[in-house]
Design a protein around this nucleic acid. Sequence first.
DNA 1: ATCGCAAGTGTGTGCGCACACACTTGCGAT
DNA 2: ATCGCAAGTGTGTGCGCACACACTTGCGAT
Lengths: 357, 357
Amino acid sequence: MAEKKHPNIRIVDIARMAGVSTGTVDRVIHRRGKVSDANLARVNEVLRQVDYHPNLVARSLASGRCHTIAVVMPHFATGEYWADVDSGIRRAEIEAGRYNVAVRRLFFDQYDRTSFDDATTALASETFDGAVIATLFAEQVVPLTRELDARSIPYVFVDSHIPACRELAYFGTSSFDAGVVAARLLTDRTEPGADLAIAKIVRTGNGGSNQCRNREAGFRDYLARTGFAGNIREVELRIDDREYNTRRLDDFFREYPRIAGAVTFNSTCHILGDYLARRHRRDVRLVGYDNIRRNEELLRAGIVTALVAQRPDAQGYHSIMALCGFLTGTGSVPRINNMPIDILLRENIDFYKTEII
Amino acid sequence: MAEKKHPNIRIVDIARMAGVSTGTVDRVIHRRGKVSDANLARVNEVLRQVDYHPNLVARSLASGRCHTIAVVMPHFATGEYWADVDSGIRRAEIEAGRYNVAVRRLFFDQYDRTSFDDATTALASETFDGAVIATLFAEQVVPLTRELDARSIPYVFVDSHIPACRELAYFGTSSFDAGVVAARLLTDRTEPGADLAIAKIVRTGNGGSNQCRNREAGFRDYLARTGFAGNIREVELRIDDREYNTRRLDDFFREYPRIAGAVTFNSTCHILGDYLARRHRRDVRLVGYDNIRRNEELLRAGIVTALVAQRPDAQGYHSIMALCGFLTGTGSVPRINNMPIDILLRENIDFYKTEII
DNA sequence: ATCGCAAGTGTGTGCGCACACACTTGCGAT
DNA sequence: ATCGCAAGTGTGTGCGCACACACTTGCGAT
């Protein structure tokens, strides 16, 4: 075992076949110019004939260039959504490290718009060869991309898509369709004609994220299309104020007693789930997003009916690898990569591990 | 951008620091012996101090060893289940190729037990460094593993797990739990007390696959646990005899008119779906397995209610990569890798592409 | 004193490629 | 006829490592 070699075709072989030197082959492969039309055609013909694939290991070793990727993403605690994205980034980091590609993270607060601008400012004075941008605040991402365009730095979007930018690639779900799926799951299990609740977790004056808005649009679109007959009631909750939320929800459910299903468009459906559990309200179906730890616990406990998930780990992994492939010239990737929209129930949640993509 | 180098520590640096030659460092790193105790200790101390990590790219290029992985899997046509597994294998093949790991396939007929033995016989006279085995026929896989154990060849299981073997790793779903999920999806949408049908597609005298048996066990277990009150009726169909199937199903549904839901435990629920579509029977809910083309079409058409899927592409990909990592000494992987059990509805099927793991 | 041999050590080469550099050729301008 | 220069071409070196090979050292046997 562990035999000698697979007789792969090398640059020297190409050169010999085309009757030129390896330098010329190299110039053709890398489009460095300074090659006569005749030789260009001949080398290209040989490359085509033998279906040449460069040995990427050797290329990486020889070129020895080092690239840096800046990642602009929310900071996170264990068990939160962006921790899963980061675990994919870390996986990619190891793999990309073999090709001399390093990753540097810049964090912002996902509940604070201004912190994104701070991260952007910090980025302006850094040198790096590519960027991965979490697109939570679409309005602020756009000017950042203009700046990167001007500096000719490629960038990848992760989380939700922003139109009219020149991103190298996008990785995330179709937020609109993720909203549609949530609506299907919620109405599948709720008697017709009952009311539905939308719980929004925001910080005052902060607006909603790009993604939450699009999910809500898909959710409402599905209900309209399928002739949903009940009312949709909205309630605003706070990320870090459990007492406020309890009072607010007590009032809310008193005011709208016919509510039989609820949805939250970011990953915090556990806030509503905690409340329902404490109040022993098993009559309200709850559908939320993302397989973060608290949500998983409530799904197992039967408080949450279903979770819509989006492979955060894979999003992080592919964002880095796409940029890595571009920078090292070893791979290309489609521009729009809509990830699968996963449906998690009590029966399959145990197998939805992010480590296995 | 594209800077010079990350100043990594190389073997020459280690050698200089320890006051020995690179050859000695190499012998220490690879535990080749023939090093004096004093030098061994000194080199190890330096390795520890600088936290040396070998450049795997350079290692791969230098060692130039070539490994072969034999894959024993069912042959397939476009759009069939194993075509998706193979697409993952092909993806891994490209990546593993960079580390001089090649893949060779041996095919058998998934509906013919004896063909597996033929493939096994062919394998006996081949030389290879590792094997990936599709575990459809558990009884025949076991003796094959004994032989591989004797030859000290590592092997990876893919599809369904077989206990009491010495596999390096397993990639696939928990078949039992995939059966549970199907039962949940079917009974969620079917009125209580109605009968259910299990359609089995077999070749005479061939028994069922390992996986189908376990899925059925999980399916029945869920029904028993949740107090299912109806009857479960079985019907046997043929893989390539549409006329027979039509007659058989006409008889079957005439005999059992209260059937409101049906399941098929392999990927051929489209056979039953085709029948239901032709007979305009929208009153029978149908749950099946695997996102193969015909099943997807029927899901979009509303004939199939839900599909349970298992990331065939990822199974193929990881099976190869696990073996590749083991053979090149660049990675290790858990032994049991239960893949996620995916739920596909009309609303999310469009995004379930196997190319994006 | 010399030899053989084991144990230990260092050097040289090549993996396939990228890239700097030296070199050749042919043309128009003088 | 000679020169300068652009366009085109080939050679040499090194990336970091693995491994074959040559070599040194020190010991016991003769």
